[in-house]
Design a protein around this nucleic acid. Structure first.
Length: 330
DNA sequence: CGGCAGGCGGTTA
DNA sequence: TAACCGCCTGCC
């Protein structure tokens, strides 16, 4: 790694980690390319800060903000992430009380995949492929997050035949009802403020329920979560994980109730770090038919094509293609 | 009202 | 083993 890490504490005595410089990263593209469901954009209230920094661009309303900010929950940690696009500085402010000394050097770099050379990946995928060049241009700041395995299992079972706002709502309701609270740092006043901010963006400061808790539930216990027929899948899968253990391969994933090839590929890619995974959903089918002239029904053909053409980089290719077609037609 | 949203399980031939 | 079909729910 060639970035520098700084460390300080803010007024609420929360640790703040600073990374510089980090290239090939864009928070919106990373958090809104459909791989995760517990991060929310913060409308930057720091217009004055931008002015102090010499921005002086507030006359141009269309001007892209110099800093993008997200708040979210990952791996049991609540954090705010700010990225200064101009200086290429990444700041992570932990809001939870459960911080560790290694968070700055291990947890967040691993989660955000900071130690991977995305420029090299993009070069490799672009070589002799104008379609991929176009797709990469649309989402060149995407990072594939290394998420908690159980969270990705829950999330992508819920995602089937569903839409993103509702998926997010289901996940928060699930956390609120059956997840353990994550203690916030700072004074009671600070905590109240943080909870208010989280509430405003629709986040609950709780973990997702463990497989043990979910395995002990009846379908009617999940009725308030409004999962529909997916409630049964979740409970069955939780029972299977409790009786056996967490899956480690595509085939093991595929055996879980409610997990077919698409969901298994998503879990493999985002939860197991299997970067050769190539999840094919309706959008990927769409982009493959438009850009690579496939029949939209020919999922097998697409899968074989991706394996041969993208190989170990399949997951990255899928994310660029997916993000591109969503931007274009979503 | 039917159509649809980042599929899957179950049933058929 | 490939092709269908129904599905909870919420929003248009």
């Amino acid at each position: 790694m060639d970035y520098l890490i700084t460390y300080k504490r803010n007024a609420a005595h929360a640790p703040v980690y600073g990374y510089a410089p980090i290239s090939d990263i864009n928070l919106r593209e990373t958090f809104e390319c459909g791989q995760c469901f517990r991060w929310r954009a913060l409308g930057s209230e720091d217009a004055s800060e931008a002015d102090e920094a010499g921005g002086a661009k507030k006359s141009d309303g269309a001007q892209a903000r110099a800093t993008e900010s997200y708040i979210g929950i990952a791996r049991g940690h609540i954090a705010r992430i700010d990225y200064d696009k101009k200086e290429k500085h990444l700041h992570i402010t932990e809001l939870g009380a459960n911080t560790n000394k290694t968070d700055a050097t291990e947890l967040w770099p691993a989660y955000l995949d900071l130690n991977r050379d995305y420029a090299a990946i993009k070069r490799k995928l672009s070589r002799g492929d104008d379609t991929m060049k176009t797709a990469i241009a649309a989402g060149k700041g995407i990072r594939i997050l290394k998420q908690d395995l159980w969270e990705t299992i829950i999330s992508f079972i819920i995602s089937q035949n569903n839409n993103i706002p509702r998926i997010k709502g289901c996940i928060e309701k699930l956390a609120a009802l059956y997840g353990e609270p994550i203690e916030l740092a700072g004074t009671e006043k600070n905590k109240a403020e943080e909870i208010a901010i989280l509430d405003e963006v629709g986040l609950t400061p709780n973990e997702l329920p463990t497989s043990k808790v979910l395995a002990g539930l009846k379908e009617e216990d999940l009725a308030p979560v409004r999962l529909g027929y997916r409630a049964r899948y979740l409970i069955e899968t939780a029972k299977a994980v409790e009786e056996d253990c967490l899956p480690e391969t595509f085939d093991d994933l595929n055996k879980l109730c409610g997990v077919g090839p698409k969901v298994a590929n998503c879990i493999g890619l985002f939860g197991l770090g299997k970067m050769d995974s190539f999840p094919i959903d309706v959008w990927v089918r769409r982009v493959m038919s438009r850009m690579y002239k496939f029949d939209e029904c020919d999922v097998k053909g697409m899968q074989a094509f991706a394996e041969a053409k993208f190989g170990d980089l399949g997951g990255f290719a899928q994310q660029y293609l997916f993000y591109y077609i969503r931007e274009l037609e979503g």
